[in-house]
Simulated assay, not measured.
Amino acid sequence: MENSWKIFLIFLRLGATAFGGPIAHLAYFREEFVVKRRWLSERDYADVLALCQFLPGPASSQMGFSLGLIRGGMSGAVAAWVGFTLPAALIMFSFAYGLLSLEALGVSGGWLQGLKVVAVAVVAQAIWGMANTLCPDRQRITLAFAAASLMLWWPLWWIQWVIIALGGLIGWKYLPAQAASPTPFTLSIPRWLALGSGIVFLLLLFSLPLLASHTPVNSVWGIFDSFYRAGALVFGGGHVVLPLLQSEFVATGQVDSVIFLAGYGAAQAIPGPLFSLSAYLGVWLFESSPVIGALVALVAIFLPGFLLILAALPFWEGLRSRADAAATLAGINAAVVGLLIAAFYNPVWTSAILSPRHFVLALLAFLLLTVWRVSPWWVVLGMAGVGQGVF
């Protein structure tokens, strides 16, 4: 077993340097732990990765959690998550706290508009990439467009959960899919821990809304409930959290759309998980005690994905051999592409593209990100600077 402090330091370095989003994070992990440190074999790495991609939650953070679990037990898993998440969380917390101070002083600027324009380009890039991978045929493209239309036609806070469920049902019944070829899975945890984790996941999922309904909207329990439910239903990557959080906080008036999109744009420029956006939002939701708000939001949004990893590990080999499970997941993934399309229109497009100049800058940002492969760090900084000078 590896020392937890050592695991923390390794993941802290990765969290401070791993730019590029979830796919890049997974490549960093493979290089570090399969090639360099030989913590596990190539096959075992692929098996754990398949599980992280199958379950809802942030795949790269779940992979880091699993690697820490394999090497150092539960304390190693926690150390891996804290180390990988800490740099991004501190940056996003500082950004939110700085904005609060500027707002108190009555200071604003065009750089916020620049960040909103970056968000347009980033979400468009995410939709393009996810659609190519998750909607490769007419059936899934149609399902994605139907999901987007339903979300835009009835923009109710609960409709997204219905869309995800319908996507899974349609996929299970109508989509052809082949399960992965089963191979022996050598990494496991005690079944009692898996069963307990699954029970805790479900208890929190169904009891938190009841508890939150008896407390003020911006109470600790209300914040924990909102972020927990968002983290429990994020299929397809970190960008999919955008429509879920938008529905929870922007549509209900708890967070202004300008503040929300500024944070989302800034999150593209930093290393580590995109879920660190939760620390930023926690500050705005709990202004009286921003540190508590950030911590509650962070723990709540990551917790369901980690509970699901613990619950599924002993059963993964049997589950991934089932074609109906793969078909269900294919339908869910197509539906979440549709949710991201809907979020791209509202609030991303409607609040950011207010003039032809905004559209020109969004096109430029999209070109730099997708064609010229410029680092998001430079694109975000550049657009914030241009926004400050132009708007």
Rank of each mutant, 00 (worst) to 15 (best):
G238L: 11
V241R: 03
I309V: 15
I301G: 07
S289E: 14
Y174M: 09
V299E: 09
G198K: 05
A194H: 02
P273K: 13
V220W: 08
L303Y: 15
I223D: 01
A212I: 02
S288Q: 02
G272D: 12
L203N: 00
A266D: 02
R191N: 05
W172Q: 06
Q254E: 07
G222K: 04
I170T: 03
F306E: 14
D225C: 15
L195D: 08
G222H: 06
P216K: 00
G305K: 05
L308Y: 09
A251V: 04
L285N: 00
L211H: 05
G237F: 09
F286P: 04
L195F: 14
A300T: 12
G253Q: 07
L298K: 00
S213M: 06
S289H: 12
F185G: 07
L187V: 14
L202H: 08
I223L: 11
A177E: 13
L210I: 15
L244Q: 12
A294T: 05
A297T: 10
S213Q: 11
I259S: 13
G168M: 04
S207Q: 08
S257F: 02
F275P: 05
L169S: 01
A251G: 15
F201P: 03
I292L: 11
Q246N: 15
L295N: 10
A297C: 14
F275M: 11
H239Q: 15
V241K: 09
F224S: 05
A177T: 07
A262I: 00
G168E: 07
V258S: 15
L203A: 01
W192C: 07
L205P: 04
D225K: 12
R191M: 03
W284L: 06
A230N: 08
V200E: 08
